[in-house]
Design a protein around this nucleic acid. Structure first.
Lengths: 311, 311
DNA sequence: TTGAAAGCGGTACCAG
DNA sequence: CTGGTACCGCTTTCAA
C-alpha cells in the first residue's frame, strides 16, 4: 500500500504538505506539480479509514431496512442516494431481516465505523434503543414512526390516504368492504387500519370483516382466502406483499372482489380483478429523508422535523 | 467517545491488557472481571475503524450491483449475507446505477475503506479495470462473466437452460418462436441468445424474429409489441424485467402467445397467457459466491474457481 | 507556505 | 500474564 509518506519521500516534501495539498489548502504552484507527479507515478490513493479516524467523519451514510428484497425500500434508497451523492456522501445499505436486535447490532456496528448518519426504516418501535445504538449520530426515520418523537422522519399520510381510498370505493357503489390488516406493531399498519375504521364509521359501512396478517404474500393469500368466505364487494389490503397474495387468492377462487391496496403492483394491468391502489411517492420520500439528514448533520441541535407526505 | 485508554485508566490496567482481553487472549480472571466492569460502567465500544487500520482488515464485505431495485440481485445478496454473517463479516451493499465508471469509483472507494472482499454483479466487462480498482482485494463475480478469467465466479448455465426451455416448448408443439434479446454487452444476454440460436438450429425452427432490447420492462413491452406483428406461437424473453413488459404487451393486445422467460414473476399464476419460465437458484448463487470469497480471502493465491450452476 | 511532531483509537511486540 | 511502547495512515497544530 502506497501511503502519504511515500508521496512525501518521492516528492521531497513533508507529509503535512502533501496532506494539505490533498485537502485543497494552498500549496506553492511548483510543489503542487511535484506532488501531482509523485501521486501519479506512485498511484497513490488516500486511505479513507485513516482519514476518518482523524477527522471523525467518514462521509458515509448508512441505510438500514428490514429487508433488501423489497421494492419499496430499494426504490426509496435509490432516491436517497441520488441526493446524497451530490454532497459527496457514499451510501451503504444493510438489512436487519426484520429483527429488532439485529437492527440494534447493525446500527452499533455502523456507528463504530463512524458513519455520519442513518436513514432508518425501523423494525420495532423502541426509539430509545435506536438512539442508544446510534449514539450521537443523526437518524432519520422513513415510512414508520417509533414510540418517541426523537428523530426526524418522513412518512406518508397513511390514515387519510386509506380513508380517501375507501371513499372512492364507496363512490363506486361498493359498500361491503373487508380488510386485511397488517401487524399492529408496525406504524403504517396501524395508521391504515385507523383510516379504514374511520371510513367505516363515516360512511356507515356494515358487513365488514377484518383478518390480521403479516406483511407477506403468503399471509395476504391466507387472509384473502378467509375473507372470500364472506359476502364482500371489496377488500382493503394493508401493503404490497399482502396484495400480491390476496390477488393470487382471488384469482384462484375465481371470485369477484375489488381489491384496494397500497402501491401499484407489477403487471397491474394484466390483473383480472379490479384493483384500486394508492401510489406512494417513493422518490419524494427518499429525497426528503436525505435532505433532513443533511440538515441535521449540519445542525445537530435543530428541532425535529416530521414530514407527512400527502399521497 | 470512550476509548480503550479510559477503560485502562478505570480498571487500573494497561491498554495492552485491555486490548488482549477484547481479542479473547487470556487474562487473569480477576483482571478480566475488573475490565468487564469498567467496560460496563463506561459503556465502552471498540472503535472498528482504529482496529481496521492496525489490522488491515475490516471484516466487511461489499456487494456491488447495477441497481438496488432488482429482486434478483437482492435475493442473491440476502443469501450472501446469511453465509457471511456466520463468519462475522458484515455485508454492505452499493449500486452503480448500471454505469461502469461509477462501478469503478465505488470499488475504489470501498477498497480505500479496507473492505476485505467484493461480490460483484458486474456492469461492463472490463475485468482489468475492476482488478485495478480493487487492488489486491478479492472479487467474486456473480451472474455475469467479464472479458478476462481473473476472478472467481458463479453463474448459471444460461445457454443450456435456454436451449432446454426451447426444447420443452417444441415438445408442446410450439415451433414459431420469436426472441427478445437482451443487451449484448451483458454476459447473460449473450449466453441466452446463444442457447436460443442453438435450439433454433437443432430443432430446425423457422419463422423466427428477433428484437433486441434493454433489460427493462419498457423495452420488453416495446419489443413484444413489435413481435406481435408477426405470426408467432411463442416468444422467448431474455430477463425478468423484459418479461414484465412483454406480458403487459401481450395482455394489451389480447394476443395468444406463449411467453418463455427467465425467473418466475410475481403473480405468475394470475397471468392469463401461458408462461413457461426458468427459475434461477438465487439462494445457491449467493451461497456459493460467499463461500468462494471466504476461500479466496483465506488463500489469495489459489486457482480461480468458475462455478456454473445447472438450472 | 512549509516541516516537524503530536495525536486519532487501536494492536502487537518485547521485556519482565 | 502484564506494562510499556512503537506504529497503522492521516490530519492538524505550532514554529519557522
Amino acid at each position: 500500500m502506497v501511503t502519504i509518506k511515500d508521496v512525501a519521500r518521492e516528492s521531497g516534501l513533508a507529509v503535512g504538505t502533501i496532506s494539505r495539498y490533498l485537502n485543497g489548502a494552498s500549496v506553492k504552484k511548483q510543489n503542487r506539480e511535484t506532488i501531482e507527479q509523485a501521486i501519479e507515478r506512485l498511484g497513490y490513493q488516500r486511505n479513507t479509514l485513516a482519514r476518518s479516524m482523524k477527522t471523525g467523519k467518514s462521509m458515509t451514510i448508512a441505510v438500514v431496512v428490514p429487508q433488501l428484497a423489497n421494492m419499496f425500500c430499494m426504490r426509496v434508497i435509490e432516491s436517497v442516494e441520488r441526493v446524497l451523492e451530490n454532497y459527496d456522501y457514499s451510501v451503504i445499505v444493510t438489512d436487519c431481516n426484520g429483527m429488532e436486535n439485529r437492527q440494534t447490532e447493525k446500527i452499533t456496528m455502523l456507528k463504530n465505523r463512524m458513519v455520519d448518519g442513518f436513514v432508518l426504516m425501523p423494525t420495532g418501535s423502541d426509539a430509545q434503543k435506536v438512539r442508544d445504538a446510534a449514539g450521537d449520530v443523526p437518524v432519520v426515520l422513513i415510512d414508520r414512526l417509533m414510540d418517541l418523537p426523537i428523530f426526524d422522519s418522513v412518512v406518508v399520510n397513511n390514515c387519510e390516504a386509506t380513508y380517501d381510498m375507501v371513499g372512492r370505493a364507496v363512490a363506486q357503489g361498493i359498500r361491503k368492504i373487508g380488510m386485511i390488516e397488517g401487524p399492529q406493531d408496525i406504524y403504517s399498519a396501524r395508521e391504515r387500519l385507523r383510516g379504514f375504521n374511520m371510513a367505516l364509521g363515516d360512511y356507515q359501512l356494515e358487513n365488514t370483516y377484518h383478518v390480521r396478517g403479516a406483511y407477506s404474500a403468503q399471509s395476504g393469500y391466507d387472509a384473502m382466502k378467509q375473507l372470500l368466505g364472506y359476502d364482500l364487494d371489496a377488500v382493503f389490503v394493508s401493503n404490497y406483499e399482502q396484495t400480491l397474495g390476496a390477488i393470487d387468492a382471488v384469482s384462484d377462487s375465481q371470485a369477484d372482489v375489488t381489491i384496494l391496496g397500497f402501491d401499484s403492483i407489477e403487471l397491474v394491468n394484466t390483473v383480472k380483478q379490479p384493483y384500486l391502489f394508492i401510489s406512494q411517492p417513493v422518490e419524494a420520500i427518499g429525497k426528503r429523508a436525505a435532505e433532513l439528514l443533511l440538515a441535521r448533520i449540519r445542525d445537530p441541535d435543530k428541532e425535529f422535523v416530521n414530514l407527512v407526505l400527502k399521497i
